[in-house]
Amino acid sequence: MEVRTIKVFTTVDNINLHTQVVDMSMTYGQQFGPTYLDGADVTKIKPHNSHEGKTFYVLPNDDTLRVEAFEYYHTTDPSFLGRYMSALNHTKKWKYPQVNGLTSIKWADNNCYLATALLTLQQIELKFNPPALQDAYYRARAGEAANFCALILAYCNKTVGELGDVRETMSYLFQHANLDSCKRVLNVVCKTCGQQQTTLKGVEAVMYMGTLSYEQFKKGVQIPCTCGKQATKYLVQQESPFVMMSAPPAQYELKHGTFTCASEYTGNYQCGHYKHITSKETLYCIDGALLTKSSEYKGPITDVFYKENSYTTTIK
């Protein structure tokens, strides 16, 4: 009895394709271990004539594949690729409408935090270190965002349907971005203890939790000093293409032309909904596939993004 075979390709990165001759009487799992086709788990399936010449994702289970996976995804987590594939199996079914010149995501599976993050990423200057993220990001900007969303979920250790947080998501993504040249110098002034300067680099240099107003941050924000008295913390120097200011959701007025974009969060910790506000020729609110415009805006804002380049204080 002759062994019926077909020729397929296996890959971990969709760049390096490895030619395989597979036995049609055995499952993919018996031949390769966990195997995925377009995100779908085909591990328990036997090869079919229609699979001839198709590319299958496999887990990096030998040295060659491990090197290829690390170079593309910059992670050695053995569960990463499987999590990416199972997320992709959902995100490829989502709709990605162009809204006001940006790629958004039609609401499904509690994905409003991903839509808000995706919209924000198209408006701030950011370059990702893992080629996987950078490639998928370019495709997302062009309207094909399924891979990018699935990668975000995998890097953030999230599953489809789980509630997510924009600030946490951005923080994970910033860790995989090139923020080497970003720098922030802060000064804390206390009447009792004097003053202390701190220099922050990388992710810490672009994120701040405690106030939404970048102007206020430049002037000074009140913080408790270690001595128990009130101290003032203010920005001395900022070198970065953008800054992200966050605070627990509270009524906040966004003035046209003073910011790049913002995240609105309605609801409580267990259950809520994100919308995205962007400042173009007027203010726009993007909620999944829905767009509304207004000249002014007041609502429960939790993150505001500002364009920056270089700032030095005039406070002496």
Rank of each mutant, 00 (worst) to 15 (best):
residue 297 Y to E: 04
residue 57 Y to R: 03
residue 48 H to V: 11
residue 104 S to E: 03
residue 112 C to Q: 01
residue 256 H to A: 13
residue 129 N to T: 10
residue 211 T to G: 06
residue 311 Y to I: 07
residue 282 T to P: 03
residue 293 K to R: 10
residue 223 I to P: 01
residue 119 L to Q: 02
residue 212 L to D: 03
residue 220 G to I: 04
residue 281 E to Q: 04
residue 289 A to Q: 11
residue 62 D to P: 07
residue 107 W to R: 09
residue 271 C to D: 06
residue 162 E to N: 02
residue 303 D to A: 06
residue 250 A to S: 11
residue 55 T to Y: 07
residue 241 P to D: 09
residue 56 F to W: 03
residue 131 P to M: 06
residue 299 G to Q: 08
residue 170 M to R: 01
residue 18 H to C: 10
residue 141 R to D: 02
residue 99 V to E: 11
residue 110 N to D: 03
residue 219 K to D: 07
residue 266 T to G: 06
residue 45 I to C: 12
residue 210 G to W: 00
residue 74 H to L: 13
residue 119 L to A: 00
residue 31 Q to I: 15
residue 86 S to E: 11
residue 11 T to D: 01
residue 308 E to V: 08
residue 63 D to K: 08
residue 17 L to N: 11
residue 47 P to C: 04
residue 142 A to D: 14
residue 206 V to Y: 04
residue 162 E to H: 03
residue 79 S to H: 13
residue 216 Q to V: 06
residue 172 Y to W: 09
residue 63 D to P: 05
residue 227 C to P: 00
residue 138 Y to E: 15
residue 221 V to E: 02
residue 151 L to M: 06
residue 156 C to F: 04
residue 69 A to G: 06
residue 80 F to T: 05
residue 200 L to R: 05
residue 165 D to V: 04
residue 232 T to W: 09
residue 66 R to G: 08
residue 91 T to I: 00
residue 118 L to I: 07
residue 286 I to K: 03
residue 81 L to V: 13
residue 205 A to Q: 01
residue 122 Q to W: 05
residue 104 S to M: 11
residue 255 K to T: 08
residue 12 V to A: 09
residue 239 E to A: 08
residue 254 L to W: 00
residue 44 K to Y: 10
residue 249 P to C: 02
residue 5 T to Q: 09
residue 239 E to S: 08
residue 282 T to S: 13
residue 130 P to A: 09
residue 53 G to P: 04
residue 300 P to V: 14
residue 119 L to N: 02
residue 36 Y to K: 05
residue 173 L to N: 03
residue 84 Y to D: 05
residue 25 S to H: 09
residue 201 K to C: 05
residue 302 T to D: 06
residue 246 S to Q: 07
residue 177 A to D: 00
residue 25 S to L: 10
residue 63 D to G: 05
residue 154 A to K: 01
residue 156 C to H: 01
residue 261 C to T: 00
residue 206 V to M: 00
residue 258 T to G: 10
residue 285 C to Y: 01
residue 94 W to R: 02
residue 276 H to P: 00
residue 226 T to H: 13
residue 302 T to Y: 05
residue 166 V to S: 02
residue 287 D to C: 02
